[in-house]
Design a protein around this nucleic acid. Structure first.
Lengths: 337, 337
DNA sequence: ACGGTATACGAAAACGATTTCGTAATGGCT
DNA sequence: AGCCATTACGAAATCGTTTTCGTATACCGT
């Protein structure tokens, strides 16, 4: 590693002068500035991030925290897509990203402690459980922060329009002639609350009833649970003619249960998912679902966060809503034909 | 942030003594050691990672580099699963992970420069294109390194047994009575080479011919390409009775082409994938495929890397083979029935 | 009583940068 | 000629640690 000292020696200048030349201070003559730049490039000099960060309190590192359980966050399609987009935008701004955890190897620490320990410039909280004390502690700290899919006082939040998405979906299903619509909502969270709200309100607006047992919980991303839940729903006195699954992935389990009951989709019963997972969109029959704009969610999260970091005086917390899109698919039958 | 200096003041000890007490030096009396530990805990003190790293040259940070193209690495199922496992094991050892890139925001740098800039303790190269000069430069550097799915001189490598996996698959297909087997192999890489080798050798051992056009490239993870490739294969004078797709995901495109040709799976034609993507395993009919042990691959990669980092004298580069597993599924018909 | 060891601690120099402040040289103005 | 700005640079402190080396104290044996 070539250090700034070697560079200064080679140039016959002091360390301070070289540093200032590199950082665009204006009390350096244009000639030396150029000379420094030239030799620096030639020697492949890059300032040591650690030393610089120690002095400036800027690491150009962002912390990312997601899914509280250790149940494979990266293999979760929605989160992976959001993270990927977030990463691209962060890197564009010169930031690297690091995962926040409570390191088990050395001394265990809270999320907040980990952030301080690593001196991250900002944090992105995605898909995390705000029931956890540690998460709230972090969210209330003085670290620049952006939150995805959850509202928190005085914090920038990126919200996928879950209420509207669900409304769109229900109206679409209703428009195709369905009246008995069941909804397996995921475990409690801001996201679920919004979707359930959208479901109930829209059903009411449309003058549709939601019979006992038509609204039932079934955790996200768990096909096995959806499988069981669908079994239960099928035992109801009056079978729904359409079931909305917690998400696309869980839908696979639900669909399995329907197949076992010898119900054809969509001839005998209709089905819808949520998320718009690319892979599942390729299946036959193509799943009716609501696609979340993961690209914009991640991108907007990064932009908001960088804004907070780089303009701490002027930037204010902001709430950004990201629209979603209905994908009609083929699993909701048109009953009016 | 409470620093070691505040801690020392509070204790009435010198900074050096506190540091030594915390780091287990043995020229500190047991009583002060305990006292320091107590107050440190009480004040929530954690040493600043930057300052420590600057002095010790150990950041407890690992670099991860993957997929050279910016085509969404995290949304690639196989890689995401491997990374997830790598991350868990690394964190267990007290390491955080950071993605390596060539930052576009600030000055563009090579992968190697980025690693030096961030002072990572080690690097994991996963699923990268060794045709790229920068990657080779990094692989030849003096940084502790582990490589997944590629062989490189004097480097620790974790290899999924692609040759054997393909052999298993071909033998299974052959065992079910198939003779005309086509293989759409992914773009050139160590992985492809091994699989193609396994395919050709096994076909030869079984005394099976590989007619013109039966072995054809179609990039990984691209259903659209597989769709086209299958169309081509179907135009051949003699249609294969089984097609092995580049991977599970690409298989979806291939299957679509077969559906369009009104070919039923597996009644009219058989199909196999590769990878064992969880999500796809839930489809009907269940795809016949070879599951790669992503858990062990990531875990072993982390272990090897930590070994190299923590025992630089004694540890040697090692090659670890990870077995894979055939998943029979339902898409390869038994012709002997 | 005296030299020699342990024992337990502290002073100070790093690590590699940034940044404040001081200052030599230059030039312009009266 | 003398004064004042301005320009261009350097010395040194600093960020928060670790680590080497010194040293005061106590203890021990003779």
């Amino acid at each position: 590693m070539t250090t700034i000292r070697e560079l200064s020696r080679r140039l016959g200048l002091s360390v301070s002068t070289v540093s200032k030349a590199l950082n665009g201070y204006k009390d350096i003559s244009p000639e030396t500035r150029d000379r420094v730049a030239a030799v620096a490039g030639e020697m492949g000099y890059h300032p040591n991030a650690l030393a610089r960060a120690l002095k400036t309190n800027r690491t150009y590192n962002l912390g990312v925290l997601f899914v509280d359980d250790d149940l494979s966050g990266l293999t979760h399609n929605y989160f992976a897509a959001v993270l990927d987009s977030f990463k691209v935008e962060a890197e564009r701004g010169g930031y690297d990203i690091t995962f926040i955890n409570h390191n088990i190897g050395k001394s265990r620490m809270t999320y907040l402690e980990h952030c301080r320990y690593r001196n991250v410039d900002g944090v992105c909280l995605a898909c995390v459980d705000f029931g956890a004390e540690e998460v709230v502690q972090l969210a209330m700290s003085d670290i620049p922060l952006v939150i995805i899919d959850h509202l928190f006082d005085d914090r920038s939040c990126i919200l996928s329009e879950n209420r509207q998405g669900m409304e769109m979906l229900v109206r679409y299903i209703h428009g195709r002639g369905h009246r008995r619509i069941a909804y397996l909502h995921g475990h409690r969270s801001t996201v679920s609350d919004q979707r359930v709200k959208g479901f109930l309100e829209t059903m009411a607006e449309l003058g549709l009833e939601v019979p006992e047992g038509y609204l039932r919980p079934s955790p996200y991303h768990e096909p096995a649970a959806a499988y069981q839940a669908v079994k239960r729903v099928l035992e109801l006195p009056e079978r729904p003619d359409c079931i909305i699954m917690p998400d696309d992935y869980a839908a696979l389990g639900g669909i399995e249960a329907l197949a076992e009951a010898a119900l054809r989709i969509p001839e005998d019963i209709s089905v819808a998912g949520y998320d718009g997972v690319k892979l599942i969109g390729r299946l036959k029959p193509q799943l009716t679902t609501v696609e979340q704009d993961t690209l914009r969610i991640g991108q907007e999260a990064a932009r908001q966060l960088l804004k907070l970091i780089e303009h701490p005086r002027t930037a204010r917390a902001e709430i950004v809503n990201i629209a979603c899109r209905l994908i009609p698919g083929e699993t909701v039958r048109d009953l009016k034909e």
